[in-house]
Write a protein that binds this DNA or RNA. Structure first.
Lengths: 160, 160
DNA sequence: TACTTTTATGTAGTTAACTACATAACTTAT
DNA sequence: ATAAGTTATGTAGTTAACTACATAAAAGTA
């Protein structure tokens, strides 16, 4: 069956992007399940961020990874529940809650890094011979400068 | 604040793809709202598909646009509720339900097409000077041949 | 014809993101 | 020192996708 999204031209861009991302994430979940690791896609971002930066507050994480803060709360709560994060109220500013990797997380890291490195190589393979990452960076930048809404409305007004 | 996703190498690919797609979709919603049109992002796929092909069943649509059938049901139910689709039981095969554009949809189409064409031009602008669509097609193909899970597990096994 | 398998649709429950709002704690300015 | 504004976190509700299961109809087969 021919994929209709291919016939939508550039307007199909968003849909195809989402479809591809969703498929990759679903497959990532299956992978972790198959490997018997109680981890979810996305968690590696928090692991790597906190490993590099040490303890961080919810808002800092949110800004750093470009995700709305309630999403970060939901994500890190799950990681806490799984025992991978510690949470401490900041002494200087009692509003802030500082998150950090737990001992369990540090113990698990070597095995997880192995998986993530394999994942990295897998993606590198899939993207081989393309400049995908460069293009992705460029497009992220262009759409952050001027979003889809603004671009479309600008084009609409050119007509009238 | 520096975007940490950029520091994740190819492993950040999925996350960035999803983040970009989500942002574009959210912005699309805001756009329709601002334009005062009671349409949602994604609906244009159904509009254009049914306009080209005429009435289609749920499963046909699902296969054609690469979306799970319950998602198609949810999507088209909303469009029905908004009055853009008609639904008729198939006489030859009473399991099938045939969906088609309603009169209201056909009336609305010219205005919608104007918006979608502007959107198309907006995206073309944003992607200017890149071979994004070609690369996207290539990557879709590669990941459909061999998914993220399979690629990662293959890489993992190379080590041992 | 009757049994089995396949297909089409539908429903329920899960997920991960979002926005909008609420509240508490800090900071700034009068 | 108090009021006003800002910031950090949390909660509630919405969304759009998914998988897994349920059921009814059609098709194939013994």
């Amino acid at each position: 069956m021919k994929d209709f999204a291919l016939e939508l031209g550039c307007l199909g861009f968003t849909m195809r992007l989402k479809r591809l991302a969703d498929a990759l994430i679903q497959d990532g979940k299956r992978m972790y399940k198959e490997l018997g690791v109680d981890i979810e896609p996305n968690w590696y971002v928090i692991f790597r961020l906190l490993k590099r930066e040490g303890e961080m507050s919810v808002t800092e994480i949110s800004e750093r990874i470009g995700m709305a803060h309630p999403s970060v709360i939901a994500l890190t709560n799950k990681m806490m529940k799984a025992g991978y994060l510690s949470s401490n109220q900041c002494t200087d500013d009692s509003r802030r809650r500082l998150l950090n990797l737990s001992d369990k997380a540090l113990e698990a890291l070597p095995q997880l890094e192995e998986i993530w490195n394999a994942g990295e190589r897998g993606v590198i393979n899939a993207l081989e011979g393309t400049n995908t990452m460069e293009i992705l960076s460029l497009i992220e930048q262009r759409f952050s400068e001027k979003g889809f809404r603004e671009r479309t409305i600008e084009e609409l007004n050119k007509n009238s």
